[in-house]
Design a protein around this nucleic acid. Sequence first.
DNA 1: ATCAAGCATGAACATATGTTCAGGTGTATT
DNA 2: AATACACCTGAACATATGTTCATGCTTGAT
Lengths: 122, 122
Amino acid sequence: MKRNTSDVCEVYYVNEKHVAKARKALSPEREILAVAETFRNLGDPTRVKILQALTVEELCVCDLAKLLGVSESATSHQLRVLRSQKLVRFRREGKMAYYSLDDEHIDSLMREVLRHVREGVA
Amino acid sequence: MKRNTSDVCEVYYVNEKHVAKARKALSPEREILAVAETFRNLGDPTRVKILQALTVEELCVCDLAKLLGVSESATSHQLRVLRSQKLVRFRREGKMAYYSLDDEHIDSLMREVLRHVREGVA
DNA sequence: ATCAAGCATGAACATATGTTCAGGTGTATT
DNA sequence: AATACACCTGAACATATGTTCATGCTTGAT
């Protein structure tokens, strides 16, 4: 049957002090959005592979496409996503575009999440 | 007009040594998928807020819904996603369910990505 | 200038994602 | 036992996402 419109538990059960305390820990909305978007961009197997590969050395779109086993077009689209969040940068050399990781945080994130994932298996 | 079927650049331009070297850096496929899925689960503003809030202290669904300004149902669905990747865990106490971060990696990930995001602004 | 190679992009499509809605579970209180 | 509350879940819906296809763009060679 239909419930209360708000469907949120009554006020006397919400611990206002806890809520207030937790609210202070929240980053401003624009930071939250940026964080979420960054994680979202990291949340695709193809892009994870790209970043892992670039951990070793810079690579051109051509090499990446070959490595990933997908088309250059798909690779280029993914690189665009990664560029949009400044996860990778690139330099042009003649007709080629060489991509590399943008900063050292990316490497740290990948290592940390790998630890989490490996613990989960154990 | 229509191009080559494969649309992948010719072999003589792919640097096979670089590709081989980069390939070695890649985690096994199942780890790649787990990493991507973990990041994907972190890639939503509501879930980011939940995790930031739980950094401070454990909270019940009720408190979280109030904090986020969304319905309990939506909150519960999001918590389910976070549980599926072992990002949060919970304990029952009577009718309430108290959620907290599952391990310390989550905290590290949030801090690291915040550094990345803040650099981007500068 | 013309052509080809490497890369980038726009549109379209199938699939995935997050929310709402309606209802279902389990526990405490009466 | 009956009710109320806190939380959970399945289905449906609108929107977002990633790939493919076709085509532009830019550079280097002829």
